[in-house]
């Protein structure tokens, strides 16, 4: 079990780190798909099969597609790729410092934390149970999430669409 978890962890972290470091956006997007798939694998490992499917559907399926579209739509020519600026170096350095300190703090906290012992068996979570839970106990939240998704969809469409009347020369 631990071994499987370690392998899954390496997959997740490795692809994510590579995605964050690559200069090519397409590569980054694809590597992120791999990372998200790793997360789905982790869900499977933890016994949350429904979440794993949801993760695959939403992230590996939907969001990655959107990201790829965005990358392609905003792609710039090779010539526009600028050399590394001094500002970029300092930004990277400060980002690294912040990240490292966070990792140190949380890592130390997690490493030294003690958790009460728990059952080795995974809790049962069938789709039926989750469905009932969602519809009964969390019905209101479900509705609100539905509204949020609808608003986000409409908002995204409005933001991304071209207002031809207002500024016609901005049309792509």
């Amino acid at each position: 079990m631990i071994v499987a978890l370690i392998i899954i962890g390496v997959l997740i972290l490795g692809s994510a780190a590579a995605a964050m470091l690559r200069r090519n956006l397409i590569h980054s997007a694809l590597l992120l798909v791999a990372s998200w798939t790793g997360v789905a694998a982790f869900y499977l490992w933890a016994g949350a099969e429904f979440l794993a499917f949801a993760q695959i559907l939403v992230y590996a399926g939907a969001i990655s597609m959107v990201v790829l579209f965005a990358v392609l739509l905003t792609r710039q020519s090779r010539d526009a790729e600028l050399p590394v600026e001094p500002a970029t170096v300092t930004r990277t350095a400060s980002a690294f410092a912040v990240t490292a300190s966070l990792a140190a703090v949380i890592g130390a906290a997690v490493s030294t934390a003690r958790f009460p012992a728990s059952a080795a068996e995974a809790p049962s979570a069938t789709v039926k149970e989750i469905g009932l839970d969602l519809m009964q106990e969390h019905g209101a939240a479900l509705l609100i999430v539905g509204i949020i998704l609808t608003v986000a969809l409409i908002g995204a469409t409005v933001i991304a669409s071209t207002d031809k009347k207002r500024d016609p020369e901005d049309a792509p």
Binding site: R91, S94, A95, V98, T99, L102, V105, I106, A108, A109
Partner: peptide
Amino acid sequence: THGYLRVVAVAFVLLALVLA
């Protein structure tokens, strides 16, 4: 935006430190 993010991150680090 990077600056904002950096501030948020530093604050988060401090928060984590306090909590820890």
